[in-house]
Design a protein around this nucleic acid. Structure first.
Lengths: 147, 147
DNA sequence: TTATTCAGGACATAAAAGGTCTTTTATATC
DNA sequence: GATATAAAAGACCTTTTATGTCCTGAATAA
């Protein structure tokens, strides 16, 4: 149905939470992240495991363990995290497999998927977590000043 | 996995085929469309049933029956057909349900989904079947002149 | 009236999404 | 060194969605 997976959403919210942390050295436990963002802890743990493998976070086991970002928030894009947990985005099979369409060279639908994908990926790769985190802060401030 | 459904792809290919027909009055059988586009006939029939309900095609039963477009190809967009068979596109649940996020007003992720969706829908609604069909013709001509 | 073709709905299958749980391993503190 | 804590790894489970098929009934042209 053309929808983003919960996995990607949860992972993004998790990374966003870490991006907002002042202390970038002390690990943050998965339980804290999950509670703060309102997502299932066990599931988030799985997701952070793969984020670790892909090199976006570093994990510390044991007492006072948890996760730390390995890059600064401005270096991490939405696309990075989406693709880390869902694998590469392909709007349509014919964009993966050359020869999926019986006659690639005359199929005009091809081009539409290609262009749509290019635009979508371009947009997601232009969104980084520094901006995102700051825009969240700004929103919170605005809300506060109103009340 | 953020992929377009086969349903949408098949429906689009079906409509594209009809768009390329010279004769816009004589109905085209589902079998012909399916064979031409290499898609499962029974499935395509289902899809055209819903396209009929949504008013994009008219069906004629019985001998020499089939389907006819009810609009000219230039009036039908990609988005029309995608949404006809998949329902409205929502990249994320929080774009459907107000209050899905615990704190909408301070969640910055929201905006990203919203913008991405706006762009994607904008693009798909800008693609019409007249252009698409013509670009297919052009491609075929080019290929022919080469051989 | 008969062959053809779509309509409608039930049904089937497989894959993916979304998530839980248990065991093991690493680490800090007492 | 023992113990509590927390992630790693992988097995497992449930529900939903995607992708079809098939059968019966209704419309229609020859």
């Amino acid at each position: 149905m053309f929808r983003l997976s919960k996995a990607a959403e949860y992972a993004i919210r998790g990374v966003l939470y870490l991006s907002g942390k002042e202390d970038t050295v002390k690990p943050t436990g998965i339980e804290e992240i999950a509670t703060a963002q309102g997502v299932p802890p066990a599931y988030l743990a799985k997701l952070f495991q793969t984020l670790g493998k892909k090199g976006f976070v570093r994990s510390v086991r044991g007492h006072d363990g948890g996760f730390v970002l390995t890059k600064t928030p401005s270096e991490i894009s939405f696309l990075d995290i989406i693709e880390a947990v869902e694998g590469p985005i392909f709007l349509n099979d014919c964009l993966i497999n050359e020869g999926y369409c019986a006659n690639d060279s005359v199929c005009p639908v091809h081009d539409v998927w290609g262009e749509a994908q290019k635009r979508l990926l371009g947009f997601f790769s232009s969104c980084n977590f520094k901006e995102l985190s700051e825009s969240g802060l700004k929103k919170r401030k605005k809300l506060k000043s109103k009340s």
